[in-house]
């Protein structure tokens, strides 16, 4: 094993291979975190709509979830990047192909965000549905409107309940961000492969990449545990049992 490879001058770009690794980490984090912001906000709205007693609200959310969950991420990635510019109005398509900055990056962020939103939606839905019906009845019985019941009763408990499954979705988004390499985003996995092709130090390079992913997992897990502890409800058993 020879990790000095990372301090050799890189094939191009003037720096050393370590710079490539760092740049890969930067793009992995950027794609994942931006996509998570989309996934969390869109997914929360969809998840709430999925629990609505009104069909007009529930049905479109259900259709969304079914479509985005049942098509592989890779296929969705290609559709955002290759297909979308062709089927939108011509002027928009031209802009997407020529004027838009960092088209690979933004396609990856949007794709991963809207894909993960369907999974977040399912977690939020099942979190809300795991709250006994009596809680909603109690809220309504004291004169709250349905919106107020969601705001003050269902969502505060629902989000606490879904912290563990949402943590796992958040971890998945970092791993799934590697699919962005298929449309040319030079994130961590892509950089690892590229360095191994130039240096033949495959073992060392893949080891470093794997360790970085492990560190990301570890950091996120620790952070979410802390969050879970911070918002824990005194005396409430439901979410404490793991």
């Amino acid at each position: 094993m020879d990790f000095s490879v990372f301090f050799q001058p890189a094939f191009s770009g003037g720096g050393i291979y370590l710079d490539w690794v760092l740049s890969g980490i930067k793009w992995t984090l950027l794609v994942s975190i931006l996509a998570w912001i989309i996934a969390f906000s869109v997914g929360s709205v969809l998840g709430v709509l999925r629990t609505s007693h009104l069909t007009v609200l529930r049905a479109p959310a259900t259709v969304y979830v079914e479509i985005f969950r049942n098509v592989p991420l890779l296929v969705q990635m290609f559709i955002w990047y290759f297909v979308l510019p062709e089927i939108v109005p011509k002027s928009v398509g031209m802009w997407m192909k020529q004027g838009m900055p960092l088209p690979e990056f933004w396609s990856a962020v949007l794709c991963l965000g809207f894909y993960t939103a369907s999974r977040v939606a399912e977690q939020v839905r099942s979190g809300i549905q795991s709250i006994p019906k009596g809680q909603t009845e109690a809220g309504l019985a004291m004169g709250l409107t349905r919106v107020q019941v969601y705001r003050h009763v269902l969502l505060p408990m629902g989000y606490r309940i879904v912290i563990p499954p949402l943590t796992s979705e958040f971890l998945t988004i970092f791993k799934n961000s590697s699919v962005a390499l298929t449309i040319g985003v030079l994130e961590l996995t892509a950089q690892a492969r590229q360095i191994s092709e130039y240096t033949f130090r495959t073992f060392e390079v893949f080891t470093v990449a794997t360790v970085v992913y492990l560190l990301i997992t570890l950091t996120v897990t620790v952070a979410m545990r802390a969050l879970e502890k911070k918002v824990r409800v005194p005396g409430y058993i439901g979410s404490a049992g793991k």
Partner: peptide, 30 residues
């Protein structure tokens, strides 16, 4: 309905206090 319900108190079999709020917050909410 919300207005009508606010005039009628209801007590449930399983209490249905809101677990994430303190006792005072539960009574304050509505």
């Amino acid at each position: 309905l919300p207005k009508l319900r606010s005039h009628i108190g209801m007590v449930f079999q399983n209490f249905e206090l809101f677990p994430h709020m303190t006792v005072t917050e539960n009574i304050n909410l509505a």
